[in-house]
Amino acid sequence: MSFLKIENLNKSFGDTQVLKGIDLEIEEGGFLVLVGPSGCGKSTLLNTIAGLENITSGKISIGGRVVNDLHPSERDIAMVFQSYALYPNMTVRQNVAFGMEIRKVPKPERERAIQSVAETLQIAHLLDRKPSQLSGGQRQRVAMGRALVRDPQVFLFDEPLSNLDAKLRVDMRTEIKRLHQKMGTTIVYVTHDQIEAMTLATRIAVLRDGLLQQFGTPTEIYNRPANIFVADFMGSPSMNLIPAKLKKNGTALAIEIATGDASVTLPLSGENGALNSHAGQEVIFGVRPEALFEIGEAEAHKGQTARFIAPIEVVEPAGADTFAVTHLGGKAVVARLGADTGITPGTTAELAVNLDKAVFFDPKTEQRIG
């Protein structure tokens, strides 16, 4: 049963429509990540859930109760902001306790809640310090602690890690995931970082220009993107999107990709469903870098594979992986190879592609075929 449900939500600022018919729902204890480029409407959507922005039309329900007209204080939510929003003249203890004092929670109960949250977030030794004496990661833990003592129905996070350096972001991401697994509270989390979205979410909503592009599990979003935008936005490196032509190959189909004066033909086997109706037409052939590999790695890739010769232009060692750049269909194409590959730039290499991992898009509508 849905715990947080958003139905046909629209939000306009004057004549500018920022959210356009958003439909989302998440089960109790779920972790919903709203992701998309800057200006796509994800923070506005979060603010409408919080009650910080009124909606133009639609419905928001939390725990089966419609909250459209409820004040933020009546929605039983807690929010963690990007800026931490700590009181500089208060100690950590006072910052965490402030909301409980306003609600007149008895002091013994406040102290128990503070101690419990401080131990959970590993900030017990910081309780008597002021925010100016803390690192960015410690301040973010305090901001989270202030939300946790509320014990709300829903936690709202608005890009909480964007002010942290790269290593600390990874560490805090792990802490947030551990916290969610321990407490099981429903979370809605805004980020523009698609790696953050993939690692944290049980469900992802991809937004663009106020429209919901796709809503699904991280696996669905990554492996079966609904359109070219989602395919390109989610994943690092992003999906290779290669102009190609679908051709009849006997009773089956094949993909023909231009490579300079020649072409590469990759045969498809098995049932091709909706692809059959696009035979003879131009398509966009989408394949993730990890589905392009050296012939010697073929045993690790189960499924339908096809081989081709590729001129290697750039090789980028990246620790556990090596990224090799070639060209297909007039586009730069990235293959994720092993760390110990012998491939060098300026040479040719025989690569294979796992066609079971491929997806196809209509170049006119940009929607996935099938």
Rank of each mutant, 00 (worst) to 15 (best):
T56P: 01
T56N: 01
T56D: 08
S57Y: 01
G58P: 07
K59T: 12
I60R: 00
I60P: 00
S61Q: 13
I62A: 10
I62D: 11
I62Q: 10
G63H: 10
G64A: 11
R65H: 13
L70E: 12
L70V: 08
L70K: 08
L70P: 02
P72Q: 03
S73A: 13
S73D: 11
S73M: 09
E74T: 00
R75M: 05
D76G: 02
D76R: 03
D76M: 02
D76S: 05
I77G: 00
M79I: 10
V80E: 08
V80Q: 04
F81E: 07
F81N: 03
Q82Y: 00
S83Q: 15
Y84H: 03
Y84Q: 05
A85V: 10
A85Q: 06
A85F: 07
A85K: 01
Y87P: 02
N89Y: 15
T91I: 07
V92W: 05
N95D: 10
V96K: 00
V96W: 04
V96L: 12
A97W: 03
M100L: 15
E101S: 09
I102V: 15
I102S: 06
R103K: 12
K107F: 04
P108Q: 00
P108N: 01
E111A: 07
A113Q: 14
A113E: 14
I114C: 07
I114T: 07
V117R: 00
V117H: 01
V117W: 01
V117I: 13
V117E: 05
A118V: 11
A118E: 09
A118S: 13
E119S: 13
T120L: 15
L121T: 10
H125V: 04
H125A: 14
H125M: 06
H125E: 15
L126Q: 03
L127K: 01
L127W: 02
L127M: 05
R129M: 02
K130Y: 07
P131W: 00
Q133C: 12
L134Y: 01
S135E: 07
G137S: 06
R139P: 11
R139M: 10
R139L: 09
Q140C: 05
M144Y: 03
G145I: 10
R146G: 09
R146T: 05
A147T: 08
A147S: 14
L148Y: 00
D151S: 15
P152K: 05
P152E: 11
P152F: 08
Q153I: 14
Q153M: 13
F155K: 06
L156N: 10
L156W: 06
F157G: 14
D158L: 11
E159M: 07
P160G: 11
L161Q: 12
L161I: 14
N163K: 02
